[in-house]
Design a protein around this nucleic acid. Structure first.
Length: 460
DNA sequence: ATAGGGTTAG
């Protein structure tokens, strides 16, 4: 048997790139030549650092990622590009770790890498997305004379204004941008137009789209049109929405899955299933692959028609096509089943989520909880309540009302006490809820029981 | 992979 050949730094990069499992990729990185005892340390390429850091960051394996970053900081053969750190900053942002993002930002110079407006922008975006508006302001002030804001900086700020519902500020930002000689780009217009549409200012949004093309000479892009198409569909102007789709095609802009999904979703909501099907076909023929969001729109359409068979079929089709259903796919079905009183099936699917590799989110818990209450399955609902609290979620106030109201009507004192104890521990009993309990007790002449109840719930 | 669009509850 010939001796195994050592893999080259270049080969390691391509192996890392192909390795989907971040744990295996890390093993490979740490021990690229397990067969060979070499006295010389492996000469990692900058690319291989980039790939492994990105993989670990995406998988939220921050401890391991930081270890690799420390190793990278000891390398003297090259200076890493700023983009690696920008990515690390946004990985922390996605994991809601803004302090870690700021820490990375501070450490960039220790990698002998110069910070530019790019890493400033990354931090700015993370701070906004983590709801750290005050820190964002501080950071902007500090930015002052170090870097010049670019289009991306303004786009982040315009987005922050739009998402906070301050459209006036967003327009001001847009004006300031132009006054400072920064040219707005497609992202700027997509952001503003989406903000306008979300606030029902369709006419303004349509005008801005026209100005974008004629006045600002920015090429049309799909993300500028999607919010317009969505809003037109919402108000029932489907033919105008299709008009915008035609306009994109006239401009030779390739339609992507978001545009198709918006149309499919609208058609299903208006009960035009046949047309939704044709759009899906057109999508496939034009070489645009339906993704999870597209299939979710289909599932929603079927659930609205109470065709759960068809909805489950889409789920199977997704798995077959390698398009993984996400929590929304399941939430839609669970919600649909609940609406139809099929709470057993809804609960079965809910309990099957871990096996299907999907973690229930807050919407999921609230949906199944309210669904069980609607059909008077208070025992099941109450046990879900505790599970919710354990996971750090809480039911909506409407859901709480449904549970307590239902238990009062049934005068199910044992379960009511249990529910109120859980709710009380989570500090979720308001005047409205006490009102329900007390008026029930008055009707049933059980005031003494209520005072007992109050004692149980109020005493910490 | 520094920034933007499309799917779920209430």
């Amino acid at each position: 048997m010939s001796a195994p050949k050592a893999i080259s730094p270049h080969r390691l990069s391509s192996l890392l790139r192909r390795q989907k499992d971040p744990n295996l990729a890390l093993q490979l990185f740490q021990n690229p030549n397990p067969q060979i005892q070499s006295p010389k340390p492996f000469r990692y390429s900058l690319l291989s650092y980039d790939i492994i850091i990105t993989k670990l960051g995406r998988a939220k394996m921050f401890h391991q990622m930081e270890q690799i970053l420390r190793q990278l900081s000891r390398e003297t053969r090259f200076v890493p590009g700023e983009i690696i750190f920008c990515n690390v900053i946004s990985f922390y942002g996605r994991a809601r770790l803004p302090h870690k993002a700021l820490q990375m930002f501070d450490q960039i110079p220790s990698f002998r890498c110069d910070r530019t407006v790019k890493s400033y922008n990354s931090v700015l975006d993370v701070l906004f997305k983590c709801g750290e508006v005050e820190k964002m302001r501080e950071f902007l002030v500090g930015l002052g004379n170090h870097v010049t804001p670019d289009a991306c900086t303004y786009n982040i700020l315009i987005n922050a204004c739009c998402k906070s519902g301050c459209l006036h500020d967003a327009w001001n930002m847009f004006d300031e941008m132009r006054k400072r000689g920064v040219r707005p780009n497609g992202v700027t217009f997509a952001t503003l137009i989406s903000g306008l549409c979300a606030n029902y200012r369709l006419e303004e949004a349509m005008r801005l789209k026209e100005d974008m093309i004629r006045l600002y000479r920015v090429e049309p892009e799909a993300p500028v049109y999607t919010p317009l198409i969505k809003e037109l569909c919402r108000i029932g102007e489907l033919s105008l929405a299709f008009g915008l789709k035609d306009e994109l095609e006239r401009y030779k802009v390739k339609l992507d899955s978001a545009v198709y999904t918006t149309l499919i979703s609208a058609l299903s909501k208006f009960g035009r299933k046949g047309e939704a099907y044709w759009i899906l076909e057109e999508m496939k023929v034009s070489g645009c692959k339906p993704d999870t969001v597209t299939y979710n729109a289909m599932i929603n359409g079927f659930c609205m028609e109470k065709d759960f068979e068809a909805a489950y079929k889409i789920l199977d089709q997704m798995v077959k096509e390698g398009c993984k259903p996400n929590i929304i796919s399941y939430n839609v079905i669970i919600g649909g089943l609940c609406n139809e009183g099929k709470w057993v099936e809804a609960n079965d699917l809910f309990e099957d989520l871990p096996r299907r590799g999907c973690k229930p989110d807050i919407v999921c818990y609230r949906t199944i909880f309210a669904g069980l209450c609607d059909w008077k399955r208070f025992k099941e609902a109450t046990s879900i309540l505790d599970e919710m609290f354990f996971k750090g979620y809480a039911p909506s106030s409407a859901g709480i009302h449904k549970l307590v109201d239902g238990l009062c009507q049934e005068a199910n004192m044992a379960l009511l006490l249990k529910a109120l104890t859980s709710l009380g521990n989570a500090n979720l009993i308001n005047v409205d809820i006490w009102g329900l309990v007390i008026s029930m007790a008055c009707k049933k002449e059980m005031l003494s029981n209520v005072s007992e109840l109050v004692d149980t719930v109020m005493v910490p």
